[in-house]
Amino acid sequence: MSNKSPPPRPAPRLYLATPAVDDPAAFVAELPGLLAAADIAAVLLRLKETDQRTMITRIKALAPPVQKAGAALLVEGHAELVARGGADGAHLPGIAALKEALPSLKPDRIAGVGGLTTRHHSMDAGEMGADYVLFGEPDAKGQRPSSQAIAERLDWWAELFEPPCVGFATSLEEAHDFAASGADFVLVGDFVWSDPRGPKAALIEVDAAIKKAHAAALVGQDPAGQEHG
């Protein structure tokens, strides 16, 4: 066996988080154009809390256009609705939720996890069989680590572990930095939807930024000329 270094990681892809979806009709009309505009691997469906039957109906409305575009539809929480709605998986808020949901999701569906406040929790999630780990999302009080701390966590994970890591970006700059740090996916949401130019323009811009950051990281330089420690 030769001691060849592993092949470079592929360029990061986008993971698009929806606003809280109440009426899916307008969203269903907008989604195909957005999914065609950028390299979006998955859509995280945030459902407005209501009765189960209504939430399942909303998942059923959104799953086909997302899947037709070649992306996966994940539901935030609500692992028990994933199969019934035809979604591809669930994003779970922490180790306890992951543990509880794994039997209903595996082996056919994706189980991603966030809310990992320590490195130890992150490793536990990987060992339990999480399909990805998310770093950087706000907690219940809206607090989150600094961008630098999130980038360091992504870099640590990407160096040592096999399951993909996702960086939760709240700006174009964070998306760029997290891609440079080794994120396999960059989760974008609110800043895309609130962009005055519209979400499509924002997605195209952030997609280009993460690809550029990844390419620069491969050759060991930052295209913006900034020093990254």
Results as ranks from 00 to 15, higher is better:
200 K>T: 10
20 A>R: 15
147 S>D: 06
81 L>C: 10
28 V>M: 14
122 S>W: 00
102 L>I: 08
3 N>H: 03
207 D>P: 13
2 S>D: 12
34 L>Q: 03
35 L>S: 02
192 V>E: 15
207 D>N: 10
105 L>W: 08
225 G>I: 09
24 P>F: 05
108 D>G: 01
3 N>K: 11
124 D>R: 09
112 G>R: 07
217 A>C: 01
87 A>T: 06
97 A>F: 04
173 E>C: 14
209 A>N: 06
135 F>M: 06
189 G>P: 05
121 H>K: 12
75 V>M: 03
109 R>C: 07
3 N>Q: 10
91 H>Q: 10
8 P>Q: 09
161 F>L: 15
20 A>D: 14
84 R>C: 02
85 G>T: 14
203 L>C: 00
198 G>V: 08
177 D>I: 15
213 A>S: 05
57 T>H: 09
30 E>D: 13
18 T>A: 04
43 V>D: 06
157 W>S: 15
98 L>R: 01
107 P>G: 12
120 H>W: 14
204 I>D: 02
11 A>G: 15
219 V>L: 07
3 N>R: 15
196 P>L: 08
155 D>I: 02
51 D>F: 02
133 V>S: 00
198 G>Q: 12
155 D>F: 13
25 A>M: 03
25 A>I: 10
65 P>I: 07
13 R>S: 13
11 A>N: 06
148 Q>H: 15
141 K>A: 14
135 F>N: 05
170 T>P: 15
205 E>D: 12
85 G>E: 02
59 I>Y: 00
204 I>Q: 00
114 G>I: 05
184 D>E: 13
13 R>T: 09
70 G>C: 05
2 S>Y: 05
201 A>R: 10
8 P>N: 15
61 A>N: 02
114 G>E: 07
44 L>A: 11
5 S>T: 07
60 K>Q: 09
109 R>K: 14
219 V>I: 02
202 A>M: 13
91 H>F: 05
126 G>P: 06
103 P>Q: 15
174 E>M: 04
7 P>R: 08
123 M>D: 02
5 S>E: 04
51 D>N: 15
174 E>F: 04
56 I>K: 05
127 E>N: 09
109 R>P: 05
116 L>C: 00
55 M>C: 13
48 K>R: 00
69 A>E: 11
99 K>V: 03
146 S>P: 00
171 S>H: 12
130 A>W: 01
163 P>Q: 03
220 G>R: 12
116 L>M: 15
79 A>N: 01
110 I>Y: 02
61 A>R: 14
82 V>Q: 13
127 E>T: 01
87 A>E: 00
67 Q>C: 03
220 G>N: 04
227 E>S: 04
17 A>D: 11
79 A>H: 06
32 P>V: 10
105 L>H: 00
10 P>H: 09
3 N>F: 05
68 K>V: 05
2 S>V: 12
229 G>R: 09
193 W>F: 11
135 F>R: 11
46 R>G: 00
199 P>T: 04
223 P>S: 03
82 V>L: 07
130 A>T: 08
98 L>H: 12
42 A>D: 09
184 D>N: 08
212 K>E: 14
97 A>E: 01
111 A>W: 06
226 Q>F: 02
32 P>Q: 14
162 E>M: 01
157 W>A: 11
9 R>G: 08
86 G>F: 01
205 E>S: 10
3 N>A: 09
4 K>H: 12
16 L>P: 06
222 D>C: 12
64 P>I: 02
168 F>L: 03
12 P>G: 10
